[in-house]
Design a protein around this nucleic acid. Structure first.
Lengths: 132, 132
DNA sequence: CGGCATCCAAATAGATACTG
DNA sequence: CAGTATCTATTTGGATGCCG
């Protein structure tokens, strides 16, 4: 055991596992990465369906960017655009089941984000008290 | 129950919960968002420590971008740069404990990314067979 | 309301060369 | 090896106006 050949094999397997993980995360980032996609899905999961509603909830997003993000989300099977005839016509966006497969990711990020915010807050408090 | 006042309260609480989640995810994206940060941390968690090693593992990243990402990761307390004197001096980057708080996020994204890749593959196969 | 078109500014990133 | 500097190309995004 522990000879150089075995180490080589272990190291190779390890590198491959690393590549698998990197590829998976890279795929995920390609589909849901960027500043807005997850936020839009979260907002919609909380009941926001109209363009303007979503824009109000996801603070900082412009109409142009929201428009293009919604298109991408639709193309990738996360949401669907529904146009209801009438006067005036109303347009609503709805989550498709595939969006719900993201629940674990959103949950993990929410949890981490809250801890991170708390950490930053604590650090700021400490550095402020040190300055006295 | 179900009168308009209660609905208003429920809706308000719901909106606030939504904002909490959005804020948390937004914080998380600010710290670990972008194309590269998670990938670099994953690579380092698998044992890559040297600049060139990391660059080789994280395919597509340029030296300039890797350099600036490492700086940001260091500033935010995820990694530390260690310079060992000697001939020649060797520079290594190491994960700090704070990086390990990301394990759940990385795990969730890896899992989702793998499922997503499989889904894309299946869809491609189906659309290819339809074309016959 | 739910966008699209256009123009323009800013941020980002690739290529290349160079350094200790 | 581990970057930095510079230049350029591309992407991104805000602002505004317009439309059905």
């Amino acid at each position: 055991m522990g000879n150089s050949k075995e180490n080589q094999i272990d190291s190779k397997a390890f590198t491959e596992e690393c590549n698998t993980v990197l590829m998976a995360v890279s795929d995920a980032l390609y589909a849901i990465g960027g500043k807005w996609k997850l936020m839009i899905i979260i907002s919609m999961a909380r009941g926001n369906k109209r363009f303007t509603e979503i824009q109000r909830q996801v603070s900082g997003i412009s109409a142009r960017v929201l428009s293009s993000e919604l298109k991408e989300l639709e193309m990738n099977g996360f949401i669907i655009k529904k146009v209801a005839v009438g006067y005036p016509i109303t347009i609503e966006y709805e989550l498709l089941p595939y969006s719900h497969t993201l629940e674990e990711v959103v949950g993990a990020m929410t949890k981490w984000g809250m801890q991170h915010r708390q950490k930053i807050k604590d650090e700021t408090a400490v550095s402020a008290s040190k300055k006295v």
